[in-house]
Write a protein that binds this DNA or RNA. Structure first.
Length: 833
RNA sequence: GCCCAGGUGGCGGAACUGGUAGACGCACAGGACUUAAAAUCCUGCGACUUCGGUCAUGCGGGUUCGAUUCCCGCCCUGGGCACCA
C-alpha cells in the first residue's frame, strides 16, 4: 500500500471532476431542488483567506450531502469585483482596475478549485462582466421608473481619503469604514434609493424566514422603527420691543418636533434644535444673541461625528434669545436652545425637552437651570429623570391626569390630530401620529471609476431620463486617467466624448451621469442571476427563477448580516413587486441565513497584514493537502463562534486522515458481501450512532462534533483485528463531504468504477443505535457511588434488587433505610437515605 | 447606557429535554520501534489526598434526590447599536 499522498491524489481528482463537469447542475428536473449559497468573494489582491474556506467548506458539506440525498443541487460561485479596494490597489500598482480584477479572479479561481469545492463553475460570472451589469443597470432603470430612485441634494458623508461619498451605513464611529479616514459633511447631488418605503416590510417579513435570531435583531435595530407623533410648537413673534418685527424669511411659524412620548407634552419646558436647523437662519434678525449662536453652530460643525456623539461629554448649548416657542397644550412660552446633542439627521432635527422624564433633557436642564415639571408620578424628579412608560400615573396634565402613560400617549395623539383653530396657521391639527425610522434613504452614487455607470442622461429640456433599455449596458469606458478628483467629481466626467450624448426623449444635446454605483449594486441580486446566468433577453427566465428560488440556505460572515442582507432583501422585494421575479418565489430571497465565526490569528488576535499573522491557505494545501485544511476548519471549534487558528492542531487532523488511509491494511480480503449486522454488535451500534450523529450535526452546522464522532468510530475500528469492506465503505461515505479527495481515492481503491458521489447518503437503523447494555449509575444522596453494567431491557424492580445487593452500595447506605428511590430508565438510580 | 452571545483542565472544546462533567483533538510525560532522530504505535494526563475519599464548570445565594443546564443578585470577555428624541 502506498502512503497517503494528498499532493498527488487531490489534483488528480480535481481534474477528473472538472473534466466530467460533475457539479454542473441540470437546468430543471423532477428532483427536489436545493440552492445552497455562500457570499461570492471579493477578488482582492491578497488571495483567498481562511474565512472564505470556512464558509465555503461548510456549505460544500451541506450541498454534497444533499446531492447524495437525491436533491438537484445548485451550489454556484462568482465574483464581486467592482469597487474601491481594487481601484485603490490598481492606483498603487499603477495598473488598470480591469487588469487587477482579471488577475485576481484567476488567482481566486485556482485557489477555490484547489480546495475541492463542488461549485458549478459553468455558471460563474463577475459583477464586472458587461452582460451581468447590463442587468444591474436595468434594475436601476426600473427603480427610477417606479419613483424609487431620485437625484437630490444631500448632505453626505465625504471620506477625505477615499474621495468618495459614503452611505450612512459606511461611516463607522465617525470614520470611513474602509480606510478609517476622516469623514466630513459635504452637500452634493446624489442618487438615492428610497429604501425607507420598504422599511415596514423589511421588518415584518422577517417572520417568514429562518435566520439566526441575532441576525433578525440586527436587521430590526438597523431599521430602527419608533412610533410616536409630530407636534408643532408656534414661535412667538415679538420678544424684543426694540425690534419692530421678526424677520422670518421662510414664513416658518412653527417648530415641529418628533416625539415618542406625546404623553409628556405638559412637561415640555424648553425646546432644542440641532445646529444645522433652518430655524436659526430663518430667524436671524429675531435672535438677539445671533453672534453667540452663530459661533456655537460653527464650533459644532467643526466637530467630527465622533466628538459630537461622545456620550461622556457634557452637554452644551446656547439659548436663542429673542424668540420663544409656545407649548400648544398649555400656551406657555418656553425657551429655545441650540445644542449639538440633537442631531439633524433624525426626526425633524428639533426636540421638545421634557427634563422630568428624559435623561438627556434632565442633564441639560440641570446645567442651564431650566424648569422641571413632573407629569408622571412614580419617580423622584428632584434626583433623576423618570423615563418609565409601563408604570406611573399622569399628573399636572389636565385631561390626561390619572391615566397611565401608555393610555395617555393614545389620548394625546387623538387630541393633537383634532383640527382646531391655531394662531397663525388657520384650521389644522397641531400634530399627528408619526412613525420614524433610523434607516435613511440609500445614497447610491459614488464619484469614482471602478463601478457600474448609472444609466441616466440629463437633458436641459427634459430633465433626467433613463437610458433606453435597448442601449444597455452603458459600458464603463476604458480610460487611462481614472484617478479621483479633489472636487468630488467622478473621473468619468473628464472624458467629454463619453459624457456628451443625446436626449432619449427630444434627441437634443444631453449629458450622461458620470457617477457610478456603489459596491453593493452588483451583490444585491447576484444569486438570482445564478439561476440563469447566460440570459441576454431578460434578467432571469421566470421558469428558472421559479424552480430555483428562493435560496434555501445562505451562509456568510457576520459582517454582512446588516447591510448586504438588508439591501438585497430590499431589491428582491422591489423585483417581486414589479414581477421581475415570479410571485411563486415569495417575498423573501433567502429562506435560511446562517453566519460563521471569524477565524482569528494564533493567540486569538485578528489576522492582519500589519500584524503579519495572516494564514495563507496555499501553504497548508501544499504541506497537508486541501482535505486536511477542510477538516481542520470544520473541527477547530463551533462553527458560529470566532476561533483562533492553531497550527499544531492542523497536524492532528492530518494524522486523522492518515489513519483513515492506513485502515485499508485491516480490510478483509475483498469480502464486501459480509452483512453488517452479523458483525460485532458493539461496533454496529457505534456505526449507526455515527451515521445519525454526522447526519444530524451537518444539518445543525455542528461540524466539530461530527468530525469528533468520526474520530471515535475510527478509534474503535482501529482496535479490530480486521474490518469488513462494508464498514469501511460506510465510514468513507460519511467522510466524503468533509474530505472529498481522500474519500474518492479510497473508493476507487476498493474497486469501484463510479464516483463515490453517486452513492446514497446512508441511513441509520433506529433499532441498532441502541446498545444492548448500559452503565447504570447509582447515586446515594446525590453522589455517584457505583456503576453497574446492565442489559437495556432491565425492569425497575430488577434494578432495585440488583442495586440493594451491591456491596458498595450497601456500604454507602450504612444500614439506613432508603427514604426514596428515583429511577431514570436507561440512566440511573438515585437513592435518598 | 441598551441588546445579543459567552465564561468548563495547560490549550481548542464535548455534555440530549435537569441525570456519569471533561467526549474528540492539541500539548505534555513515560514506554516500544530505531545506531540515533523524525514519523508511527502503546500508556498516562482537572486539583488535593491520610488512597477511604474530598473539592471542582466566572463569583454569591436559591429550587431539586440530583444543577455546566432552571431562578435571583453580581463580576468579567467578545459582538452589535448608541445623545434616535
Amino acid at each position: 500500500m502506498e502512503k497517503y499522498n494528498p499532493q498527488e491524489i487531490e489534483p488528480k481528482w480535481q481534474k477528473i471532476w472538472d473534466e466530467q463537469k460533475i457539479f454542473e447542475v441540470a437546468e430543471i428536473t423532477d428532483k427536489k431542488k436545493f440552492f445552497g449559497l455562500i457570499e461570492f468573494p471579493y477578488p482582492s489582491g491578497d488571495g483567498l483567506h481562511t474565512g472564505h474556506l470556512r464558509s465555503n467548506t461548510a456549505m460544500d458539506i451541506i450541498c454534497r450531502k444533499r446531492r447524495m440525498q437525491g436533491y438537484n443541487v445548485l451550489y454556484p460561485i462568482g465574483f464581486d469585483a467592482f469597487g474601491l479596494p481594487t481601484e485603490n490597489y490598481a492606483i498603487k500598482k499603477k495598473i488598470k482596475p480591469q487588469e487587477a480584477t482579471e488577475k485576481n479572479i484567476a488567482t481566486f479561481t485556482k485557489q477555490l478549485k484547489e480546495a475541492g469545492f463542488s461549485f458549478d463553475w459553468g455558471r460563474s460570472f463577475s459583477t464586472t462582466d458587461e452582460d451581468y451589469y447590463k442587468w444591474t443597470q436595468w434594475i436601476f432603470v426600473q427603480m427610477f421608473k417606479a419613483g424609487l430612485a431620485e437625484k437630490k441634494k444631500e448632505t453626505i458623508n465625504w471620506c477625505t481619503s477615499c474621495k468618495i461619498g459614503l452611505a450612512n451605513e459606511e461611516v463607522v464611529n465617525g470614520v470611513c469604514e474602509r480606510c478609517g479616514g476622516e469623514v466630513i459633511k459635504k452637500v452634493k447631488e446624489q442618487w438615492v434609493l428610497k429604501i425607507t418605503k420598504y422599511a415596514d416590510r423589511l421588518i415584518e417579513d422577517l417572520d417568514k424566514v429562518d435566520y439566526l435570531e441575532r441576525i433578525k435583531m440586527q436587521q430590526i435595530n438597523w431599521i430602527g422603527k419608533s412610533e410616536g407623533a409630530t407636534v408643532k410648537f408656534p414661535i412667538s413673534k415679538i420678544q424684543d420691543t426694540n425690534k419692530s418685527q421678526i424677520t422670518n424669511t421662510n414664513n416658518q411659524y412653527y417648530l415641529e418636533v418628533f416625539t415618542t412620548r406625546p404623553d409628556t407634552l405638559f412637561g415640555a419646558t424648553f425646546m432644542v434644535v440641532a445646529p444645522e436647523h433652518s430655524l436659526i437662519q430663518n430667524y436671524e434678525s429675531g435672535i438677539m444673541n445671533y453672534g453667540e449662536v452663530k459661533e456655537y453652530v460653527e464650533q459644532a460643525k467643526k466637530k467630527s461625528d465622533l466628538e459630537r456623539t461622545d456620550l461622556n461629554k457634557e452637554k452644551t448649548g446656547v439659548e436663542l434669545k429673542g424668540i420663544k416657542a409656545i407649548n400648544p397644550v398649555n400656551a406657555k412660552e418656553i425657551p429655545i436652545f441650540v445644542a449639538d446633542y440633537v442631531m439633524m439627521g433624525y426626526g425633524t432635527g428639533a426636540i421638545m425637552a421634557v427634563p422630568a422624564h428624559d435623561e438627556r433633557d434632565y442633564e441639560f436642564a440641570k446645567k442651564y437651570n431650566l424648569e422641571i415639571v413632573e407629569v408622571i408620578k412614580g419617580g423622584d424628579v428632584s434626583k433623576e429623570a423618570f423615563a418609565e412608560i409601563e408604570s406611573g400615573e399622569m399628573v399636572n396634565s389636565e385631561f390626561l391626569n390619572g391615566l397611565k402613560p401608555n393610555e395617555a400617549i393614545e389620548k394625546m395623539i387623538e387630541w393633537l390630530e383634532e383640527p382646531r383653530h391655531h394662531e397663525g396657521a388657520g384650521h389644522e391639527s397641531i400634530g399627528k401620529r408619526q412613525i420614524q425610522y433610523k434607516l435613511h434613504d440609500w445614497i447610491f452614487s459614488r464619484q469614482r471609476y471602478w463601478g457600474e455607470p448609472i444609466p441616466m442622461v440629463y437633458c436641459e429640456k427634459c430633465g433626467w431620463q433613463t437610458v433606453p433599455e435597448k442601449d444597455l449596458p452603458v459600458v464603463l469606458p476604458n480610460i487611462d486617467d481614472y484617478l479621483p478628483t479633489d472636487e468630488g467629481d467622478s473621473p468619468l466626467a473628464k472624458k467629454e466624448e463619453w459624457v456628451k450624448t443625446n436626449c432619449p426623449v427630444c434627441g437634443g444635446e444631453a449629458k450622461r451621469e458620470t457617477d457610478v454605483m456603489p459596491n453593493w449594486a452588483g451583490s444585491n441580486w447576484y444569486f438570482i442571476r445564478y439561476t440563469d446566468p447566460k440570459n441576454d433577453k431578460m434578467m432571469v427566465d421566470p421558469k428558472k427563477a421559479k424552480y430555483w428560488l428562493p435560496v434555501d440556505w445562505y451562509n456568510g460572515g457576520m459582517e454582512h448580516t446588516t447591510l448586504h442582507l438588508l439591501y438585497s432583501r430590499f431589491v428582491w422585494k422591489f423585483l417581486y413587486d414589479i414581477c421581475a421575479v415570479p410571485k411563486e418565489c415569495g417575498v423573501e430571497p433567502y429562506a435560511k441565513r446562517t453566519a460563521h465565526g471569524m477565524i482569528l490569528g494564533e493567540g486569538g488576535v485578528k489576522m492582519s497584514k500589519s500584524r503579519g499573522n495572516v494564514i495563507n491557505p496555499d501553504e497548508y494545501v501544499k504541506k497537508y493537502g486541501a482535505d486536511t485544511l477542510r477538516v481542520y476548519e470544520m473541527f477547530m471549534g463551533p462553527f458560529d463562534l470566532p476561533i483562533a487558528w492553531e497550527d499544531k492542531s492542523v497536524n492532528g487532523v492530518y494524522r486523522f486522515l492518515n489513519r483513515v488511509w492506513n485502515l485499508q491494511t485491516k480490510l478483509k480480503s475483498q469480502n464486501s458481501k459480509v452483512k453488517i449486522e452479523s458483525q460485532n454488535p458493539k461496533l454496529t451500534t457505534l456505526l449507526h450512532q455515527t451515521i445519525k450523529k454526522v447526519g444530524d450535526d451537518i444539518e445543525e452546522m455542528k461540524f466539530n462534533t461530527a468530525v469528533a464522532q468520526m474520530m471515535i468510530l475510527l478509534n474503535e475500528l482501529e482496535k479490530q483485528e480486521e474490518i469488513s469492506v462494508a464498514y469501511y465503505s460506510l465510514f468513507i461515505i460519511l467522510l466524503l463531504p468533509f474530505a472529498p479527495h481522500l474519500a474518492e481515492e479510497l473508493w476507487q481503491t476498493l474497486g469501484h468504477k463510479e464516483s463515490i458521489m453517486k452513492e446514497k447518503w446512508p441511513e441509520y437503523d433506529p433499532n441498532l443505535i441502541k446498545a444492548e447494555k448500559f452503565e447504570l449509575v447509582v447515586q446515594v444522596n446525590g453522589k455517584v457511588r457505583e456503576r453497574i453494567l446492565v442489559p437495556v431491557q432491565i425492569s425497575e424492580t430488577e434494578v432495585r434488587d440488583l442495586v440493594m445487593k451491591n456491596e458498595k452500595v450497601v456500604k454507602w447506605l450504612e444500614s439506613k433505610e432508603p427514604k426514596k428511590m428515583i429511577y431514570i430508565k436507561g440512566k440511573l438510580l438515585s437513592i435518598v437515605v
